[in-house]
Amino acid sequence: MTLKELAIFYHLCEDSHLSNLAQRLGITQSAISLAIKSLEQKIGEQLFDRIGKKLILNEIGRLFKEKTHSHFVALNDAEDFFKDSKISGILNIASSKTIGDFMTPQIVFDFLTLHEHVTIQKDIKNSSQIIQMVKDAAIDIGFIESSCEDADICKEVIGDDQLIVVSADPCLGEGTFFIDELFFKKWILREKGSGTREVFLDALGVIAKELKIFMEFSEFEEAKTILLKNPQTITCLSRVAVEKELLRGELFEVKLFNLTIERKFYMIYNKNKYASKLFTEFKQFVC
């Protein structure tokens, strides 16, 4: 059954004079009759008794109206809502750890402030997991810290970041070192699949294989706790992740000879993703 057939049915319930209704709706009487016959065939029951030239709503018709009218009104309301060009819907996103902790919360808050009919469901995963989720269409948009060259994925740069080596050992904050001079320290790094880890090890090049990883972590607070309580430990993190600790003099940036580690933050989405108004608006808002 169609919304048009239902609309004619409800109109006919209020005014059973075909000529009056045809004039009011701007259609022919035969079009009204055909719509009602089509509706009755789909239901398998007659909704009106034909008494002479009159159509009288019968007991089946009254029940059908009672059971369906509220749903018809709701469907019309939904149609009108979307026709009003309001940005609405439910958007699923996932962010890598640095972006998810320090960037997307404010982005989501600001966007929801502008669009009251939108819901954003967000998750935090590592970059490799997010890439796979985008490929599988498990999420609408992903935010990652490492590049992605997959042919099925579109990517856009949304920001710049710098990775720095940090420690709670104040002596390391006073000099400048070659990176391999620090390999004797107890290195703690993000888990495999993390964009931060991948970018750092790629920057080291061939000597990365000489680095012994003492411990892995997934949460920034976990890493900071280890660093602050154990000055013999060292790690590489985004500057934004340790900004407060650096300002308070709790952690120290270890300056390096001939090694600056910079990276881009990316927004990614499946190349076949349907560009709804919500998707397009959020994408433009982020960029």
Rank of each mutant, 00 (worst) to 15 (best):
I107F: 13
D110L: 12
E253D: 12
E181D: 13
E156N: 13
P231I: 03
L39R: 11
D80I: 06
K135S: 11
L75D: 01
D202V: 01
T2N: 15
T2V: 08
I164Q: 03
D169E: 13
V286R: 03
F143L: 00
F200W: 10
L18E: 08
R248G: 06
E14W: 00
F9D: 08
E250Q: 14
N20T: 10
E250A: 09
A241G: 03
T280I: 03
F252W: 05
I60H: 15
T280Y: 00
E245W: 04
F82L: 05
Q162F: 02
K53N: 14
Q129D: 15
Q106L: 12
I130T: 03
L47K: 07
L25C: 09
D49L: 14
F279V: 14
Q121S: 08
A208S: 15
D160R: 15
T280G: 00
L12Q: 02
K135L: 11
V166Q: 01
M133Y: 13
A203G: 04
G89R: 06
F9A: 09
V166D: 03
I124C: 02
I8H: 03
L25H: 06
F282E: 10
V118L: 09
V73H: 06
K54F: 10
S128K: 14
V165P: 03
A78N: 10
K67E: 12
A94F: 02
F183E: 00
D160C: 12
I51C: 04
E216W: 00
Q232V: 13
A151W: 00
S276N: 09
D140P: 03
I164N: 02
Q41N: 15
E66F: 06
S38N: 14
Q41F: 06
A138W: 13
Y269V: 10
F109C: 08
I51Q: 10
H115K: 08
K209I: 11
G52W: 01
M267V: 12
G26V: 00
L251N: 07
S30N: 15
C171N: 12
E181H: 02
F72Y: 15
K264T: 04
F184D: 13
N270Q: 14
V199G: 02
E5W: 03
L163T: 00
Q232R: 09
G61Y: 06
S96Y: 05
